[in-house]
Nucleic acid binder design. Sequence first.
DNA 1: AGAAGGTGTTGATTATTCTAAACGGTATCC
DNA 2: GGATACCGTTTAGAATAATCAACACCTTCT
Lengths: 192, 192
Amino acid sequence: MDAEPLGVPEEAAVGARLKRMRQVFGLTQRELARRAGVTNGAISLIEQGRVSPSISSLKKILDGIPMSLAEFFTIDLAASEDVFFRADDLTEIAFEARISFRMVGHPLKERALQMLHETYRSGADTGEAMLRHDGEEAGIVVRGRLLVTVGDQEQALGAGDAYYFKSRIPHRFRNPFDELCEVISANSPPSF
Amino acid sequence: MDAEPLGVPEEAAVGARLKRMRQVFGLTQRELARRAGVTNGAISLIEQGRVSPSISSLKKILDGIPMSLAEFFTIDLAASEDVFFRADDLTEIAFEARISFRMVGHPLKERALQMLHETYRSGADTGEAMLRHDGEEAGIVVRGRLLVTVGDQEQALGAGDAYYFKSRIPHRFRNPFDELCEVISANSPPSF
DNA sequence: AGAAGGTGTTGATTATTCTAAACGGTATCC
DNA sequence: GGATACCGTTTAGAATAATCAACACCTTCT
């Protein structure tokens, strides 16, 4: 009706959505247009909300990403909010004086994965009583050295070294060295 | 490109999908068109797959149902298959000579709900050892009378009477009367 | 500075979709 | 039997979307 579709939220939403998806996949309008077999102009118009694409052309474009129509309309953009967390924003998990665990992501949210930024000061030890819990965990040493014990294996890991094991296997982390050690770890499902 | 979009599955799929949705909601093309503020012709063309509607018009049409674009593209039409089950098709769950449990739906399919058509002949009893399991259950007596025990409460229910309780509470069903008793029950999540 | 190659955006034309109004078919009512 | 009231379908023309080609802008390179 109107020349300017101001009051129509869905068009703009589709455009914004497409732009978001395209950017998430690291594509330019032209690159996506080439892959999809449409013109870059069409994508520009759609993203600006100046036209409402037909299902067929939207599908054609999404095929170039690639992404299904169902995905396109279903994926919750808000859910991918808070992708970045500043170091200061990480939630501290008290453990022991010499150990600091700082969690990536919101504490309360239901998640399939948990990531921790761990700091082991000299002399830190998760305890003689080995840790055991469900899931699997992995980590990479960022700075300093860490003595990792998993089952009957024990290794001193330096910066860049990593571990991966099933958390049911008794494990322990120690820093018997005199320099501070930082580790980035992840476990799934979350067990803290 | 072609006048006849034979090789394009998606358009036809959208048309068929729309037709299905419209029919499921018991609407005629004209009625839906009236609600959506489009012409019945447009709906006809779309359903035949002769055009690929724009997002804006598809949304307008779906608003008339009403249904979101996400729903429209997500809902699995095949999943709503086998909606009706003849009495003879209900799967019998052997229990006791005087008790018959006949399940609605396919035994193997993952479901959030289970419905049973239960028959308690005179003297039937689910057992002195009370039943306990996860979930919640409800039922309505269709015929005869049933003595229902839930925790420390006990009631004789007649036709039309019903119950609802958390299945963790010990429960028992008995028919000490001399007429046959039929009950329709449901429990979620399925526990048989 | 200027050329080259990238980005997204914009008119004029072509192609497609939507509307409006008709058509044929079927069931119901009188 | 004919009028009425639905149904879905179809066609000509108005409205909208997509293309093509140019445009303005920004980096990078020489």
